[in-house]
Simulated scan of single mutants.
Amino acid sequence: MDLALDRLTVVTDGRSLVRELSLDVPSGQVVGLVGPNGSGKSTALRCVYRALRPSSGAVRVGPDDLAGLSPRRSAQLVAALTQDGTVDLDFTVEEVVALGRAPHLRGAQALSPRERELCAQVLDRLGLTPLAGRGILGLSGGERQRVLVARALVQEPEILVLDEPTNHLDVRHQIELLSFLRGAGLTVLVVLHDLNLAAAACDRLAVLGEGRLVTAGTPAEVLTPELVQEVFGVRADVVTHPLTGDPQVLYALTTSSADRTAGPAPSTDRTAGPAPSLTP
C-alpha cells in the first residue's frame, strides 16, 4: 500500500515544525527520513501514526485520507515504533507481543490458533523465543526494543513507521533488523540518524532541514559531500562500500564550528613538520 505525505504542515506555538512536506513512499519500499536534530523527522512520523494532527495537508494511505479512517482501521493499516515506546507494566514478552493483535480483536476476544502461531513466528524471527516468559521490565534496552518491534510486526500492518528503531541495539541486531525490513515486503517509513545504515537499508532517502524537504532520491543520488556539508554542517567524503556497492560516508572530525567552512584537513604525515600547538 502506498503512503503519501501531501503538503504536510505542523505549526506549534507559532513555530513551524514541518513545512509543506510532500513525500511519496511507494508500496513495498523502504524510505528513510534523515536530517539533523530538529529538522522535523519525528514530527512528520507522528502525523503518520496519528499521534499528532497536522495543521494543514494530509497523510494518505492508498486512496484514503488517514484522518477520515476510524482509529481501529488506522491501526490495522499502520503500525509504529516510536522513540518513547515504553511498557509500564511488567507483562511477559509474549504478552506484550500479543498486544499487537489488539486492532484486530473485539473486547476480550482470545487469540486464534493462527494468531498464536504468528506471535511465535515473530518471536523466533527476532530471536526472542528464549525470553518469551520473562517480564519485559527486566530486559535490557536492546531486548526491550526488539520486543516492541515484534509487537508492531504482529499487528500485520500494510505500513510500518519506525523512529530510530536501532536505538539500544548492538551492531548485529541493527543489521538483522534492517535486513529484515528490507525483505518484509511492507511499506516502511523510517527515521535513522546513521547515514551509513540508512544507505544500506533504504531504497530511497528523504533529507529534511528546518522542516522542509531538501532533496529525495536513491542513497547514491542523495548522499554527496556537498549535501552532508550543507545539511549537517560537517566535512565528509563518500565512498562505495566494497561488498554492497552502497554509498558510505566518511566523516572528518573538526575541533570548532569554524572548521566546518575550512579547507581540507591538515596532513597527518609526521614528516610534514610539527603539529600546531593546542595552547593559545
Score class of each variant (00 low, 15 high):
M1K: 14
L5C: 02
V11Y: 05
T12Q: 15
E20K: 04
S22F: 07
V25Y: 04
G28Y: 10
G32E: 03
L33E: 10
P36E: 10
N37G: 04
S42C: 08
Y49R: 07
Y49N: 11
Y49P: 05
P54V: 01
G57K: 06
V59N: 06
V59T: 06
R60H: 12
D65W: 04
A67P: 00
S70A: 08
A79N: 07
Q83A: 15
D90L: 07
F91S: 10
F91R: 14
A102N: 15
L105I: 08
R106H: 13
G107E: 11
A108F: 15
A110D: 08
L111M: 13
P113S: 02
C119A: 11
C119M: 10
V122W: 01
L123R: 09
P130Q: 06
L131E: 05
G133C: 07
R134L: 08
G135V: 06
L137A: 13
G138H: 04
G142W: 02
V149A: 04
L153I: 13
Q155S: 04
I159W: 01
D163S: 11
E164K: 10
H173T: 08
H173C: 11
E176S: 11
L177Q: 11
S179E: 08
F180I: 08
L181Q: 13
A184T: 08
G185Q: 03
T187Q: 00
D194N: 07
L195N: 07
A198E: 02
C202E: 09
C202T: 12
D203A: 13
L205S: 10
L205H: 09
R212V: 06
T215V: 14
P219T: 12
A220H: 11
E221A: 14
E226W: 09
V228G: 05
Q229D: 12
Q229W: 02
G233V: 03
V234N: 14
V234S: 14
V239C: 00
T240W: 00
T240P: 05
P242S: 10
T244M: 01
L253G: 14
T254A: 08
R260H: 01
A262P: 12
P264R: 13
P266T: 00
T268G: 14
P276W: 01
L278C: 13
L278S: 13
